[in-house]
């Protein structure tokens, strides 16, 4: 299998740039902090919006400042930093819901993704989905644990090992969980006849 750079994670050059930026950010270099922010904030926001859309921006800001305060003691590269960022965000999220006296609304995530109610996958051409719609399609009907793993893997760009660290589970548990999630999604897509433009015309839903 060849690497497919179009999906998800950053390429090696960018990763090495981010490693450099992380080192400079330790010394409060504004340019470096901006690099990290632009690289990770969109992912972080999408993760938080899926869990708590109404406070996502505030939680993201709190997350960045919390990591800044602890950056001195942090050891690792840019990928480790990103995993740490998501772990901090997840704790903030849990604290937020504790303070609100309720559980995270993971179950009802579809309408919360930018308020976009996505029709059944069979009704859309997969190629034309926006990122948020695609995420909604991806997560629909998944149990909360599976949904969180998929979001962290796809939106966060974290590896299975990193997701395990973030959610406090083993990498093996993450791999099993994500496999179940994709099997369910695959079955649903097939059942609904969803397809891509490259497929045979008769299979495409207009």
């Amino acid at each position: 299998m060849e690497p497919d750079d179009t999906a998800g994670s950053v390429g090696p050059d960018v990763a090495s740039d981010l490693d450099t930026a992380l080192e400079a950010a330790r010394h409060a270099d504004p340019w470096a902090i901006t690099c990290l922010f632009r690289a990770f904030q969109p992912q972080l926001l999408r993760y938080l919006r899926y869990r708590a859309p109404e406070v996502a921006d505030d939680l993201a800001s709190e997350t960045w400042l919390a990591t800044a305060r602890s950056l001195v003691g942090f050891k690792g590269d840019a990928n480790d930093f990103r995993a740490w960022l998501f772990a901090v965000a997840r704790r903030r999220l849990i604290d937020h819901y504790r303070a609100m006296g309720r559980r995270p609304r993971i179950e009802s995530l579809e309408p919360d993704v930018h308020g976009t109610a996505v029709a059944d996958v069979a009704e859309v051409v997969i190629d034309e989905l926006g990122a948020e719609e695609a995420l909604s399609v991806l997560l629909r009907g998944l149990p909360p644990e599976q949904a969180e793993v998929v979001v962290l893997r796809v939106v966060g760009g974290l590896s299975a090992d990193e997701v395990g660290t973030v959610v406090g589970r083993s990498a093996g548990w993450v791999r099993t969980t994500q496999h179940r999630a994709l099997r369910a999604l695959e079955a649903r897509l097939l059942d609904n006849g969803a397809t891509t433009r490259g497929d045979s015309p008769e299979a495409v839903t207009p």
Binding site: A7, G8, P42, I126, T195
Partner: peptide, 19 residues
Amino acid sequence: HPLHEVIRQAAAPVGRAPL
């Protein structure tokens, strides 16, 4: 392929524009 495409789009490569 549909699964691959959904995942690819959901991942949406991140830009470097000011936020």
